[in-house]
């Protein structure tokens, strides 16, 4: 049925998407919190920047990543010189591309849940002796857990499907950056690739469905079956 090469593609896709989502999670939450709760100069600009990957063509996002994070890019050159890290043509580059594309969706989901937290509850916690940080940990964070889960799953499925930015920034290298969508695309380019394409496409659909089901289950578990948590 599924060949060893196809298994490797699935594993690579899962690795890239997991790393992308786990790495983005704290950044996305911090951005969501800033945008939901703080007024500061440049807030609209930050909001627009976060949403940019959602509205510009993915190829353009990939090209921008190449300019910034490529070996000669301002950030890419520094990463290589000081940390010895190269992103282009590496699976880590594919993860970065997926992370950037997933970021706006994750921020949106989390921001909605932070907006929905009743700030009067936080005020009540403060009068009971909670510092800002303690009130955040014990009130805001648990109440936004379903939003975090939803954001993570949205980000994960978006990463699994990422194509344009990945192929532009990280290229289509077998075993390194050829994730499921890139492998399907490659299969379509070669004669006789239809069998592999069908199998990989079915696997893509199943993985996305599984992610949705897992998120439903996680959300139900995190709210203990209580219906009033947003």
């Amino acid at each position: 049925m599924i060949t060893a090469a196809e298994w490797a593609i699935i594993q690579l896709s899962l690795k890239v998407s997991l790393v992308a989502v786990l790495g983005t999670l704290p950044v996305a939450y911090a951005l969501a919190w800033l945008l939901a709760r703080r007024q500061f100069p440049g807030r609209s600009l930050l909001d627009a920047l976060v949403h940019l990957p959602l509205v510009v063509p993915p190829v353009v996002t990939g090209w921008l990543l190449l300019i910034l994070l490529g070996r000669r890019g301002p950030i890419g050159a520094m990463l290589e010189e000081y940390l010895g890290v190269t992103l282009v043509f590496q699976w880590t580059g594919a993860a970065v591309a997926a992370a950037v594309m997933a970021l706006p969706l994750m921020v949106r989901a989390m921001r909605l849940s932070i907006d929905a937290v009743d700030r009067r509850l936080v005020a009540a916690a403060r009068t009971l002796g909670a510092s800002r940080w303690y009130a955040f940990r014990t009130i805001t964070l648990p109440l936004t857990l379903p939003g975090i889960m939803a954001g993570a799953v949205l980000g994960f499925t978006r990463s699994l499907g990422e194509f344009g930015a990945t192929i532009t920034f990280a290229a289509n290298i077998p075993g390194e950056t050829r994730t499921l969508p890139l492998a399907i695309y490659t299969g379509l380019q070669v004669p006789g690739g239809e069998g592999a394409v069908t199998r990989l496409a079915i696997i893509s659909i199943l993985l996305s469905l599984a992610a949705l089901l897992v998120s439903e289950w996680l959300i139900r578990r995190s709210t203990n079956g209580r219906s009033h948590v947003v």
Partner: peptide, 18 residues
């Protein structure tokens, strides 16, 4: 706030539902 030591019973109670 957290150091004032108020025992504040809010009009809208504000129990932590979670």
């Amino acid at each position: 706030v957290e150091q004032r030591g108020a025992g504040y019973v809010f009009q809208d109670a504000r129990l932590f539902n979670h």
